[in-house]
Design a binder for these strands. Structure first.
Length: 578
DNA sequence: GCCGTTTTCGGCCCGACTGTTTTCAGTCG
């Protein structure tokens, strides 16, 4: 049983215990442990083997034993007892906005409600409103919540959330009285998926800003309205026809409070808790309005001042997950994170030769417009017929065109690449002779996703070990919120990459973002070089490389950890040496 | 359930908003 599975089970235990009415600190210990395990940047099985579990902060002797049982046997009797005791429908009911463990337990204990269907019937019959602590409004909100459940409260891809957030920002910007305006929350931390939109404004008078906010275009429901905080539901239909529905919160504070509120609402929650604990150790109190102690009030003009006042380096939002950033900031050893303008060019891009929308020349010109000094073309290989993969003859034709364009554009370099399929058994889709004609080879899995973990791992490692392979494309094949990655021992893949000096791609397509940030940190610690590729299928898609930079930053990567921060000459030299 | 240069017991981050109350519990982030 791997890291994610163990984390999911610990979180499930925490939730089941909440529904039992357990002590909140005990349930929180499980949720905290789930997070710690999910964010572990080393191999869980190895930590268990070496008896180091209890060294991890948040894991004590009880959780050590339970995790050890899970990892070694794949089962946990304690969980099975809890599942037998708590109906699964109660967990579903928790997803309704406004319903927490206490209310769900009350519904179960008093009305024997243990499914969403029964809950809906009881609301419609007016039984829920008669319970102590409930009322007519709560009953109505529950019915609305059930109706909205399929659309609201689900996570949304970062690129889509950004569009909705910017719509709200544009609607507010320019209102008189707004001093500072910022998108906070997981969008600011650049998580790959986002649950809701958090906006923060500083102004002397919140009234008119709140009024505008709840009537902005796209707002379909107002779910909260107070003097400093309002909540709405926003909806947008994308040109693809996809309709996205999200919650959005706006907080309005004074300009003096803005830095504290910005830090607070950027989160993560766990990072915020760690910061408040640190403030307490300094004899201070930190909340969303101030950093203060007895008789003193520490003025901060921006977030950096807050960190410095607590003896810390400035921690960029992407690192605020309580996964070691506090300790590093105290020691002054935070990474100098890679930036978007460090990227000099990208590989793994498609053209009209396979399934792209633009020509090689159009892609090259678009890359130049982004300030890049080179581009790599990596169209699909022959067996991927659905994507118009290139036959050997068409490869040679494409190479001639690239040679011609390289003569035409003197200060820009086009590299000849391929996104070559990794076949079922780990062989490559072109013979060695043809592979030798490319400057570089991206090897990717596009078929037989259902292989066993062992087969898939063996298959990918065999491909990485092929001398002509330069980098591994989209390491797990996941599609965010749609398809899990295939089963593969990523740690073994990363170790092979480290051993053979091969590159691992951070696929910057916002549908994929694969490798994820946790494995980026793992790759970094193993000394593996990463490469950020947009997997562009059009000129517009090229700029997606910035989403990959976000992942790299969340993965603590610096410029030197990412291959395509190198110049065209350095890249050419690397390719020739392989 | 975790944790400890005050503690092996008794703490454990903090505030806004809602709905139900008549002073507050529950939920949320």
């Amino acid at each position: 049983m791997d890291r994610e599975q163990v984390a999911a089970i610990l979180a499930e235990i925490g939730t089941l215990l909440e529904l039992k009415g357990e002590n909140a600190f005990r349930t929180n210990a499980y949720h905290n442990a789930a997070r710690v395990i999910a964010n572990l940047s080393e191999d869980l099985a190895q930590v268990v083997r070496e008896g180091r579990l209890a060294d991890i902060p948040g894991i004590g002797s009880t959780l050590r034993d339970k995790i050890t049982t899970l990892v070694s046997t794949g089962r946990l009797p304690y969980l099975e007892e809890l599942r037998a005791e708590i109906p699964a429908g109660l967990v579903q009911m928790l997803r309704i906005p406004g319903l927490g463990p206490k209310k769900v337990k009350a519904l179960y204990d008093q009305l024997h409600i243990d499914t969403l269907d029964k809950l809906q019937q009881a609301c419609e019959a007016g039984e829920v409103a008669r319970l102590r602590g409930f009322g007519a409004k709560t009953q109505t909100k529950i019915l609305e919540g059930i109706a909205f459940l399929t659309q609201i409260g689900n996570r949304v891809r970062l690129d889509q959330a950004i569009v909705l957030a910017h719509g709200l920002v544009e609607g507010l910007r320019g209102l008189p009285g707004i001093k500072r305006l910022e998108v906070c929350g997981s969008i600011r931390r650049r998580r790959e998926t986002v649950k809701d939109i958090d906006l923060l404004v500083s102004a002397d008078d919140a009234g008119p800003i709140m009024e505008r906010f709840v009537t902005l275009p796209g707002v379909v429901q107002v779910t909260g309205r107070g003097p400093t905080k309002s909540s709405v539901v926003v909806q947008k239909v994308f040109s693809s026809g996809v309709q996205i529905t999200m919650n959005a919160d706006l907080r309005v504070v004074s300009d003096e409070q803005f830095p504290f509120a910005l830090h607070y609402f950027t989160g993560s929650k766990e990072h915020g808790i760690a910061m408040r604990l640190r403030a307490i150790k300094h004899g201070l109190k930190l909340n969303e309005y101030e950093l203060a102690g007895e008789g003193r009030h520490i003025a901060c003009k921006d977030e950096a001042d807050i960190f410095h006042a607590l003896g810390l380096q400035y921690i960029p939002p992407e690192l605020r997950e309580d996964t070691g950033e506090m300790e590093a900031a105290e020691k002054g050893t935070l990474p100098r994170l890679i930036r978007g303008d460090d990227i000099q060019g990208v590989f793994h891009n498609h053209t009209v030769y396979s399934d792209g929308a633009n020509t090689i020349e159009e892609m090259a010109l678009a890359a130049q417009a982004l300030g890049h000094s080179y581009i790599g073309i990596g169209d699909h290989s022959q067996s991927l017929t659905v994507a118009n993969g290139l036959t050997p003859e068409r490869v040679l034709q494409q190479h001639k065109e690239i040679d011609r364009l390289n003569k035409k554009y003197k200060d820009f370099r086009i590299f000849k690449g391929t996104e070559c399929d990794i076949l079922e058994d780990g062989r490559l889709d072109y013979d060695d002779e043809l592979l030798a004609t490319f400057d570089y080879v991206v090897a990717s899995v596009h078929s037989h996703f259902n292989q066993s973990r062992e087969e898939m791992t063996r298959r990918i490692i065999r491909a990485i070990r092929h001398p002509r392979v330069t980098m591994l494309g989209h390491a797990t094949g996941r599609l965010l919120l749609r398809r899990d990655g295939y089963a593969v021992d990523l740690d073994a893949v990363l170790q092979t990459a480290a051993e053979t000096g091969k590159l691992i791609e951070i696929n910057a397509d916002p549908h994929r973002l694969d490798l994820d940030w946790i494995h980026c940190r793992r790759a970094r610690s193993l000394g593996v070089q990463l490469v950020i590729n947009p997997d562009a299928h059009s000129t517009a898609g090229l700029s997606n490389y910035l989403f990959g930079v976000d992942v790299a930053r969340r993965g603590w990567l610096e410029k030197q950890h990412v291959f395509n921060t190198r110049s065209a000459a350095e890249v050419a030299k690397f390719f020739q040496a392989r």
